[in-house]
Design a protein around this nucleic acid. Structure first.
Lengths: 151, 151
DNA sequence: GTGTTACATTTGTATCAACAAATAAACATT
DNA sequence: AATGTTTATTTGTTGATACAAATGTAACAC
């Protein structure tokens, strides 16, 4: 469905405006569905994102800087995100012995269990939309997005 | 730049995960730049969005339902968004005489002036990214996004 | 070793978003 | 005309976000 119709617009947008609104709108569609998935598990999508980053570290502790640069939304407050995860025993947080300015954050077994439980649901979510495109189209979309955001 | 590199990932993602992260990341890149533009004007991007919807009404008042269904983020609180615009004299709000459950929201001359001032900057913003793609690629990207989010 | 700068993270504050519950008017039914 | 139902909007509350300023630590110059 055209973006003008999704947003019930009476006027047609320029190509470049269409793209911006189209991407923004698509994110909201994706996010809405994703939030439904993780809602029963009592974590936010950004908290989930941090957990996934920590798992990606494969046992190697991550400091705040590393988490920040791997997060989707760079403006999020990493400290308070980790605070929340700490309260739920999904991560541990310790001052780095080599450099006391740094913080070592690690995912716990409980955190890993939660991710393992979510994995199939998250995969299903990703494939729910991806199944609308064939393999070549998926490649194209990825490539176009990469090219689009070049600064 | 590949999404894995943007997010400094050590592992490669599945195609479907790439798309989700790619779209999410691209929105953040777009939004970050857009917020820089509107920041000096002391309105949020959602407030700007509501103003644009109201201008699109071409003098015809919009009620809350109409605004809501045309907004990008359907979960936003329209009442309080309009509150903020009202405080800045960018819109007017009146009870609809025909149906007192409804509210008639109109953009003011001041609101229209603000939009007129922002128009070239917003257009420049949209074209900043769009210029990375040729006309055919822009079409393709729009089409792929539409197809992708089919439910 | 003292002072300066850079780095890593936290905290304060004000604003904004999410979701459920509440209100209030219009419409339908008997 | 009283009753229940639907529609349109608002409000309460809790939690998240954004940005600036503050804190504490390390590194380096001299």
């Amino acid at each position: 469905m055209k973006i003008e119709d999704e947003l019930k617009s009476t006027v047609e947008y320029s190509k470049s405006k269409q793209i911006v609104l189209n991407i923004m709108y698509t994110v909201n569609v994706i996010t809405e569905r994703f939030n439904d998935i993780i809602k029963p598990y009592d974590i936010s999508s950004e908290q989930f994102n941090v957990l996934r980053i920590l798992r990606g570290q494969k046992g190697c502790p991550a400091n705040m800087c590393i988490i920040q640069e791997r997060m989707l939304a760079k403006t999020s407050n990493t400290t308070r995100l980790v605070d929340k995860l700490l309260l739920k025993d999904l991560v541990t947080r310790n001052v780095c012995p080599d450099n006391r300015r740094k913080i070592e954050v690690l995912i716990t077994a409980k955190g890993l269990d939660l991710l393992a439980e979510l994995d199939p649901k998250v995969q299903e979510h990703e494939e729910f939309f991806a199944k609308n495109l064939n393999n070549e189209e998926l490649e194209q979309l990825n490539t176009l997005l990469e090219k689009y955001r070049t600064k």
